[in-house]
């Protein structure tokens, strides 16, 4: 299974490299593409070493965590840092095994506010205000 994935990856990268532009800017990517092709072939011929760990591509937890992160990243600008971070933290803390809703909420709120105070107030990093904009 792993080898198939390698093959696809290397094939697409080769196509990208070859389609690359005129001679000047393209020669270097082509060189890289060729290297990757050769290495991919080497891996195909001799996939030795440790066989790919037999855990499948991703654990369900990692997928859920990744999805939560994706959602967080998608809404951080429109909704704003404070709300989205609080929701993200509370959700993921519960997801990762916290049983008490109250504790998850309290920790998330405390962490959100301290991060905000540290970065926005102390280090003057501008974080997205979002929906709370008028009150901040």
């Amino acid at each position: 299974m792993a080898t198939a994935v390698f093959y696809i990856r290397e094939a697409t990268s080769y196509r990208n490299a070859a389609v690359g532009d005129v001679v000047g800017p393209a020669s270097y990517p082509i060189l890289l593409g060729a290297c990757l092709l050769a290495l991919g072939a080497a891996l195909l011929l001799k996939p030795g070493g440790a066989p790919a760990p037999d855990q499948g591509l991703a654990g369900p937890q990692a997928i859920r965590f990744g999805a939560a992160l994706g959602a967080y990243v998608a809404v951080i600008e429109p909704v704003g840092f404070l709300i989205s971070t609080f929701v993200f933290l509370a959700t993921t803390i519960l997801m990762l095994g916290e049983r008490s809703f109250v504790r998850a909420g309290a920790v998330a709120a405390a962490a959100t506010i301290s991060l905000w105070a540290l970065f926005e107030r102390l280090l003057s990093v501008l974080l997205p205000k979002g929906l709370l904009g008028p009150w901040l």
């Binding site: 993200f88 933290l89 993921t92 990762l96 962490a111 991060l115 990093v125 974080l127």
Partner: peptide, 16 residues
């Protein structure tokens, strides 16, 4: 379960 989400939030802030 508490540390990891916070670490990720810090990463998001840093990259942003």
């Amino acid at each position: 379960r508490i540390l990891y989400p916070i670490v990720i939030a810090v990463c998001v802030i840093g990259v942003y």
